[in-house]
């Protein structure tokens, strides 16, 4: 059975939100790693095709590596061991400006742990994106009280993205035939060229907006909020309960973390909260 088949689009949005906040509320590598593995398991059992799995894998690996790379360079905790120097601090100008740029051994591990935060949100986001139709997510967002005007704009955007992509390809092909090559000549030239690429696409959009507005207004749009939302399937009560518990857990973790931060920074201390401080330090 496909794991995500149990989730309704609304539950999927809630899952993304929970994952997003979970990713930032813990510092415990085990909790983070555990949740990441849970997400990966959900992804692998969701019945996503192999091409999408490769896309996900590439995205996760690149994100992990990118974070490890940056954190190995900027790791600012002790102890730290220099593996090699990219810029020596004695190098004229750059060395003095940067104070040296070294690759730190401890930064690799630290970067990996922090990259799991991105891994969680990325995996969850792609999981929902690969297993749900965009329009279903939008309907779920409307059910979650997304302002109607915003949902209308998003619907228009969703409807026209394929058309815009096709138009962009056509314009870029035409530009290429005229010798366009982005990134060829400095910073300004590609932007100037981009402007010429954008112009026909934007002109079409303006014309399209005029026609569309005539069309929607002739259907009484804007006078009364009348739109059809198909009846949603009954949601799985167990998933709802699990999401509720998970949400509650994350709110609790967030509150504990906030108290711990205030304690650590000497802003607020209550002897009665020592157990919470200890909990935050050891487990969260």
């Amino acid at each position: 059975m496909k794991s995500m088949a149990l989730f309704s689009p609304r539950q999927k949005i809630v899952l993304i939100l929970i994952s997003a906040f979970y990713a930032i509320s813990t510092d415990n590598p085990h909790l983070m790693g555990g949740y990441f593995i849970f997400m990966v398991a959900l992804f692998l059992t969701a019945g996503v095709d192999s091409r999408k799995k490769r896309v996900w894998l590439a995205a996760v690996v690149l994100t992990l590596w990118g974070t490890i790379f940056s954190q190995s360079l900027f790791y600012a905790k002790m102890p730290r061991t220099i593996l090699f120097s990219l810029i020596n601090k004695d190098t004229p100008f750059v060395g003095a400006f940067t104070g040296g740029l070294n690759f730190y051994k401890e930064g690799i591990e630290y970067g990996f742990i922090q990259a799991m935060r991105f891994g969680i949100t990325l995996t969850c986001g792609l999981l929902v994106c690969f297993t749900t139709e965009s329009k279903d997510i939008l309907r779920a967002a409307i059910r979650l009280k997304l302002p109607y005007s915003l949902s209308f704009m998003v619907s228009i955007g969703l409807r026209f993205i394929p058309l815009i992509v096709a138009e962009t390809k056509t314009v870029v092909s035409a530009q290429r035939m005229r010798g366009f090559s982005p990134m060829r000549s400095g910073l300004i030239k590609p932007i100037k060229t981009a402007r010429t690429v954008l112009l026909p696409i934007l002109v079409n959009s303006i014309r399209r907006s005029s026609m569309l507005s005539l069309s929607v207004e002739s259907r009484h749009f804007g006078r009364k909020q009348a739109f059809y939302l198909p009846r949603e399937k009954k949601e799985n009560i167990f998933i709802n309960t699990a999401l509720f518990c998970l949400g509650l857990l994350i709110i609790t973790m967030g509150i504990i973390k906030a108290f711990y931060f205030l304690y650590l920074s000497s802003f607020f201390y209550l002897p009665e909260l020592r157990i919470i401080y200890s909990l935050a330090e050891k487990y969260i």
């Binding site: 704009m153 998003v154 696409i201 959009s205 907006s209």
Partner: peptide
């Protein structure tokens, strides 16, 4: 948002789609 016409909503939606793409 009240002052925005349907044409303007559509134009913003299209711009958002271009920005997204």
């Amino acid at each position: 948002f009240g002052g925005l016409t349907s044409r303007e909503y559509i134009l913003i939606g299209l711009y958002a789609a271009i920005a997204f793409s």
